[in-house]
Design a protein around this nucleic acid. Structure first.
Lengths: 139, 139
DNA sequence: CTAATAAAGGATAAAAAGGTCTTTTAATCT
DNA sequence: AGATTAAAAGACCTTTTTATCCTTTATTAG
């Protein structure tokens, strides 16, 4: 459904969110251990999340990453930052000119699926306690 | 949502289905023109659909492909044949041990999405006239 | 039986995704 | 200021997916 990078990104965001309550910044090494991901690759994803303004980063000792403060971050924002809008916008069959005016053969059938997906991505806040619950594991 | 190969496969099946009414067999060249796909790659996908027993194939002049006769073929069958059950079975976050007993942080949120997707894939018959309508284009 | 036709199969190539390594830049703490 | 820490950046490597090419096998029509 999502790229591997996007799966990592969602886990990263949830993990950093869980840390937001207690301490503040989360370092690269800490995240990669928490979500069992390749370190260098995870660093690249963190960079993208910073560029997309979902995370702030700080260098040096006491450095690390934190959610952008005061900004509501939904699952949709994370998916858009890493995978783009393809999964919501693109034709299921990959047709360039598919739309409600010129629908592909399965256009109607997938309207509900996409609507349900979009609704879920929009409704899910990264800071939701149900997600950031520390008992939940991300490995 | 689906792999490129799977997108081609769905188009292939719909196109061959549209031919089922009038003539019978459909050749590789005809399909690739109809769906604007790379010929050799399309041939590989056709082979997979034959191996998965969704299509019958015949060699030589008058040869080609046809839907397995008398067998109901749903979109689900095509997706399973090419992409496998991943999109329905696998954890959204890629966790190995995710289940209702040990749910990942977004497990609940995606239950409805996956259910809706499964329902759609199950309910959509490749021979549905709404799909095989010849006015619909597959390029 | 032979020529022509069309799918099957296997080897190879190109592109994209996933992942690594090394150097640079910025911040902190003696 | 100098040593240390941690993220940023860019070049590189690996695997998977997408796509091509060439030979073989099976079928049909003459």
């Amino acid at each position: 459904m999502f790229s591997r990078a996007c799966e990592y990104a969602i886990k990263i965001m949830i993990y950093i969110s869980a840390n937001e309550k207690e301490r503040r910044r989360t370092g690269l090494k800490e995240v990669t251990e928490a979500i069992a991901s390749p370190e260098a690759f995870t660093a690249k994803i963190l960079q993208q999340l910073v560029k997309s303004k979902l995370l702030n980063s700080y260098k040096g000792p006491t450095g690390g990453f934190e959610l952008v403060v005061g900004k509501e971050i939904r699952l949709l924002d994370v998916v858009l930052a890493i995978d783009g809008s393809q999964i919501l916008d693109a034709c299921v069959l990959g047709l360039e000119h598919c739309s409600s005016a010129q629908p592909c053969p399965v256009h109607e059938q997938f309207l509900l699926v996409k609507e349900q997906l979009k609704e879920t991505l929009l409704a899910t806040d990264i800071r939701d306690n149900a997600l950031r619950n520390s008992t939940i594991n991300l490995k």
